[in-house]
Design a protein around this nucleic acid. Structure first.
Lengths: 251, 251
DNA sequence: AAAGAAATTGCCAATCTTTGCCAAGTCTGA
DNA sequence: TCAGACTTGGCAAAGATTGGCAATTTCTTT
């Protein structure tokens, strides 16, 4: 088995689970402990994974908490928000996903618009838009503490009653190999339905999402979407997206 | 199982519930008590959680729920809240109405309980109880800006899917002539259904509600309820209530 | 309500196991 | 043959388990 094969397998394992042990890898790869250790050492230097005692962990096992996320690449998120506010006309109906990027968009909408109809599962976004919209519908369901948003089957049920002209969707991560990924299955299902339920879905991804791989792959995009980004996409991601029904908007 | 895997699992547990026991973790992780204890010790040093006897608790000290200091009769509401917290056992399921009196009760519940199942239409109450409950379900629907709570047919629909052991209901006003009244039709319908959907409904009314007449009369009480008040009821109201299926609790 | 018994838990020390790291040896393909 | 890659073996360090004991909590009984 070639080193590159081993590396690929190690990376696959580590992206499928949050961590792998050297012990497990020696069996899977049929090589010695020491070889696996050196492979991991090498991959860790390339920032493909984290080396920990006894094995390796994925570079990003958990999504950082919301409080931190609102601060990362704030300027990029604000630029995306302004763009969204410029293309969504006043009076439109908009489904808005939870997250820090969509929150930035909601804040931008709140300053320019008055007669929006909003559907969202994010409590913060609902509060932000409440004074600036004709009507805000909060999707019901189990409250996820860290996201401050509702999730789960009830939320899907509730959303299924509505259609909107626009949808603002956040993504967990984009990479060339896995395309769009998410950090929870519930979140992925919800976002998928949000896309289906709108005429014009906008995927919002600031540059901090590039090359990030979440643990859940998103289902294939059901229809044409626009991907709004704040900086040039890495070339490999750009090429990987060329076969998808995605229009890329750089703002 | 790698140390980092264990840490991730422990943190996940502690973010899902407000507390985990070492006992439960030893089973979940398949390692000895001492190992779990040391893991917790380590995570506690990193401020990822709190170490307590027998386990760990979430580090989240829920953000100061900006108490409205202009709130009328705050002391009375707090007394009602403490009483409610004393009779609702931990682990119970509770429907909670929106409003300042029920918010006081929610705050009291949050300090004493850990494993409640909550259904509420009030965003503030949901946030307050989120770290202190096993599960918080936010009822979906149109967001009422002034109440910071959801209302309307969607909310009724959603609530109709649930039953709970307790319900904490606020009232708009109580008077001898009109008995219980409310300020909106939507609110009255919702409160009525909340009473129907619980085994043990508690109407909470501090003294600022006495002799107040809202514009909507509440439908007759569907079953026995307890009315929790913080001071002696005016005599005329007391007599008017004597023919109703109401047990009056003075706290 | 208080006292005592039983169970749980924290903490420590000794022991066993696993892992990291290094050096030397072995294998393989050009 | 030789250079690079892999394995093997050994040792020290880190990690994990076990058992013991005291402190604390919980349950019982009076």
């Amino acid at each position: 088995m070639l080193p590159s094969e081993r590396h690929a397998i190690i990376l696959e394992e580590v992206s499928r689970q949050p961590a792998v042990s050297i012990r497990a890898l020696t069996e899977r790869l049929g090589v010695s402990r020491e070889t696996v250790r050196k492979d991991i050492e090498q991959l860790a230097q390339e920032n493909k994974l984290n080396q920990v005692r006894g094995g390796a962990t994925s570079v990003r096992t958990h999504e950082p908490p919301m409080v931190d996320r609102t601060q990362t690449n704030r300027e990029g998120k604000e630029r995306i928000g302004s763009y969204v506010a410029s293309i969504v006309p006043d009076g439109a109906s908009v489904i808005i996903d939870s997250g820090s990027t969509t929150l930035a968009a909601a804040q931008a909408l709140a300053t320019n618009h008055q007669y929006l109809t909003i559907y969202t599962n994010d409590l913060t976004i609902a509060s932000v838009l409440s004074p600036a919209a004709s009507e805000v519908t909060l999707l019901g369901g189990r409250l996820d503490f860290s996201e401050n948003a509702t999730m789960g089957p009830d939320t899907l049920d509730h959303l299924s009653q509505y259609n909107a002209e626009y949808a603002l969707i956040g993504v967990g991560g984009i990479s060339a190999r896995t395309l769009f990924t998410d950090f929870s299955l519930e979140g992925a299902s919800l976002r998928h339905m949000m896309i289906e339920r709108s005429q014009r879905p906008l995927l919002l991804a600031d540059s901090s999402k590039f090359d990030v791989i979440g643990k859940v792959a998103m289902k294939p995009l059901p229809l044409d979407v626009s991907l709004v980004v704040d900086s040039e996409l890495p070339k490999d991601i750009f090429e990987a997206l060329s076969s998808e029904p995605v229009e890329i908007v750089r703002v």
